[in-house]
Design a protein around this nucleic acid. Structure first.
Lengths: 232, 232
DNA sequence: ATTTATTGTCTCAGTTTGCGACAATAATAG
DNA sequence: CTATTATTGTCGCAAACTGAGACAATAAAT
């Protein structure tokens, strides 16, 4: 967080970072110091930085990960996003002068992205203004500030629409996974149960999964195959 | 076009305005005075204006139409969009001082939209800096400035992807149209021939078209039905 | 050795899709 | 007035795809 001329004015980004654990879809939410305000992880674009690079830079800081599956889905630009009181509250709670950071009190458009990551690879890390960065079940989110709830809703909607066009599900899993795990990811995203046989037939028919040896599963049933993403 | 503090800095929009005529998909392109530069119609967002409203305002100016089918599809934010020389050329060719309009020489992100309109309803109108605003066949575009060719390509790609999810084709036609005309629209968008019987069966199966009386067509064959969009 | 839970696969019926065929018909040509 | 031409609405059939249940296989637990 630096002073005014370092970032493009009026432009912010927010990222909806999806993870999958315990059969549930989750997203990363930060909480600002001493305010009780919850928000999506976001940031600003440096004067000589590509927009997409700015978002990847923020993702790296928040998750520790490079090379994340990332997709831009909408730019939010309504006037009623402009609530300088909220930003003033955050700055003051952090002991920052609202003069030095006056540029933050201006109107912002937000370019929204969603990211899909492997839950287990992540070490969620708060930024300078926040005291936590944590996973929340998608159906148990705290009240989010500004229009961030709307951003999450549109992210999920876009993710669902992309699910049958792009092969996206496996970005939420480790490199090797079972068919059952993959199906649970799809079910969590779509919010509905899928028929096991049909799902398996469809996934294998795409010829995008490589089948490996059997998994040694500590479970009381037949050991499933492991798959990885990639034809060869 | 007004002075600096009237618009949000760093933010522009561009619109890919699709029309359909003579079995071809076309888009509106403007040419800047005395420069030979071709570009998409675009504009800026007023300080207290919703982003979407700004785009509709621009569409109204360029086409004379309200209530246009409009969809945001991507925000372009690479650094190499920043080519102040191009904007300087345009300003000078129009006799504008680059001091008064210095804000135009800054870096811009562009939020891109596509619009679908009825070709026959439109009176294309140039803006203050351009001397023409005309239809061009999608496959015979002039060289477009900056990354506008890339914007057009992504617009078409998004339109194609949306074609099987949203019912979008009829926005390019008059209120009443024949099944053959509708099919030609789809073929122009997808860039491929479709089977007549299958197309008709699918469209009617959606139960979104109302069938009217026969058309008196001056053509030497059976007169087709007319349809309009809307169930009832 | 038996039970339990889950996996990989198959079959079958129902639906959708691609494609050709047929009669119907508005204008035109003879 | 009749035949021709071009295009339309519709049907039928085969191929492909989909949803759902059924069956044997098997790793761990009893």
């Amino acid at each position: 967080m630096t002073q005014a001329p370092y970032y493009l004015k009026h432009i912010a980004y927010d990222s909806v970072i999806f993870g999958f654990s315990g059969d549930k879809l989750k997203i990363l939410i930060i909480r600002y110091h001493n305010t009780g305000l919850y928000a999506l992880p976001g940031g600003f674009v440096e004067l000589h930085e590509n927009l997409n690079d700015a978002v990847r830079r923020g993702l790296k800081e928040r998750t520790g990960l490079d090379n994340i599956y990332l997709e831009q889905f909408y730019t939010f630009g309504d006037v009623d996003r402009y609530q300088p009181d909220v930003m003033r509250t955050i700055l003051e709670a952090n002991g920052h002068s609202t003069e030095t950071y006056a540029w933050l009190l201006d109107r912002f458009l937000s370019v929204a992205y969603y990211a899909l990551i492997n839950y287990n690879d992540v070490v969620p890390t708060p930024d300078a203004l926040s005291d936590s960065c944590d996973w929340y079940d998608l159906d148990q989110l705290p009240n989010l500030m500004l229009d961030h709830a709307e951003i999450v809703a549109k992210a999920l909607q876009t993710l669902r629409a992309n699910l049958d066009r792009k092969l996206v599900g496996m970005n939420l899993l480790p490199a090797r996974f079972t068919m059952g795990e993959l199906q649970k990811v799809y079910e969590a995203i779509l919010g509905e149960k899928l028929h096991r046989g049909t799902f398996q037939r469809k996934m294998l028919g795409l010829e995008l999964l490589k089948r490996h040896e059997k998994q040694y599963s500590g479970a009381a049933h037949k050991a499933p195959f492991l798959y990885s993403f990639g034809t060869e």
